[in-house]
Amino acid sequence: MSTPDRPFASYHLWSLVAPARGQEHWHCQMRRGFIKARQHEPEVKALLAKATPPQHIGILAQKGVYEFHHHLHWLTQSDGVEKVAQLLNLSNFTIKVKQRVLQILQKYQKSPLLLGKRIIQLTSGDEGFPKPIVIEQANYCFRLYAAMDCVFIESDSTLHILDFKTGKSAFDKRQALVYLLAARYLYPGKLAVASFYNLEICQKSELITINNNELASLESELANIAYKHQLDLQKYQAKSSNFSKIFPPNPGHHCHFCPFNSICEFSHLQFDKSLSMPITKNRS
């Protein structure tokens, strides 16, 4: 848990505080509470440690790209996909995960997006938290976390930040904006663009750019998010019994897909159980 005097921001936190456009109905602040305020509790920690099949696929796909570019000859070898699959230990995963990751590897070998690029950063996806960027202005100071999948230099010297995706989820432009803000500090003076690439359907997003005025506005917005979240953490630390007031729930059908539905008293699943239990007892 963050200390009271060191607020932080990231795209992940931004997405937990405010929903993407069109997803307001499914957004639940209590999920942020479980992930960011109660993450050290044994039950919550155990649930957070369980990766879902889509998460496994995303991590393995990115690691597959990483391995291809650390063994470039595998991109042209007939057994290249098999060699990467062995490094990923795909045999340890479910058939569904294995099949989808193999398809991703086959597509990437056929059309390697990064081949020939001047790559200056390519992560395997399991490096953990990146080093924070300390952003300090006259009226705020916070730590920014931005874990970039890939950074390369275009032929015109433009810095290109690329984020890999899998599945069917829409690209969230806010993630790219956070990367562009981070690039301002990590690569000062460099002109930067950002984009997404879905490894599963081989779809590129448009190039995303931001000007200096927009960067300043974004930085201020992230500072507000950092301080709001830090205040919520302090309120919870002061009185944990107010958890549901500090991180209000938004129960509904979407609770069925929430990783915390087994321990959340407001979950639709819990609500269904509470209705069915008395009926069973009356019948018996």
Results as ranks from 00 to 15, higher is better:
G252F: 03
Y140W: 15
L87K: 14
A46C: 07
A182Q: 08
K228E: 13
N89I: 04
L191I: 14
L215G: 03
C202Y: 08
K107C: 06
Q270I: 05
R118N: 14
L207F: 14
V193E: 13
E154N: 13
W26R: 04
E67C: 05
N89E: 14
E219W: 01
A138M: 12
N89T: 09
E214S: 05
A85G: 12
P130T: 00
G33W: 01
W14T: 00
R21G: 04
R174A: 13
Q230K: 07
E219Y: 03
F142S: 02
S2A: 15
I135Y: 03
L180N: 02
L75V: 04
Q237F: 10
V17Y: 01
V178F: 09
L199Y: 07
C150F: 11
I133E: 10
E24L: 06
K131D: 15
G22A: 06
P259Y: 00
Y179A: 01
I279W: 12
Q99L: 10
H73E: 15
L47W: 11
A194V: 06
T280M: 14
L218Y: 10
K168V: 02
D172K: 02
E43K: 14
E200G: 01
F34D: 00
G116E: 08
Q39G: 11
R184Q: 15
L122R: 06
L275A: 12
C150A: 09
L16E: 00
L60G: 07
C264T: 00
G22Q: 08
S111T: 12
N92H: 14
S240F: 04
C255G: 02
Q103T: 13
I95S: 15
R174V: 00
N89F: 11
A182K: 09
A182M: 06
A85L: 06
H160C: 15
L275S: 08
L48Q: 08
H71I: 03
Y197H: 15
Q175V: 02
V101I: 02
I263H: 01
C141Q: 15
E154W: 13
D172F: 01
R6N: 12
F8P: 02
I246Q: 01
S284V: 11
S124T: 04
T123C: 08
T94Q: 11
K83D: 05
Y108T: 02
A147Q: 05
I201Q: 10
I246Y: 01
A226N: 04
S157K: 14
M1C: 06
P249E: 02
A37H: 03
A9Y: 02
I135A: 11
Q234S: 07
N261G: 00
A238W: 06
I119W: 08
S157N: 15
E200A: 10
Y66A: 02
E127S: 11
S284G: 09
F164R: 00
I133G: 06
I104Q: 08
N89S: 13
L115C: 05
A170P: 00
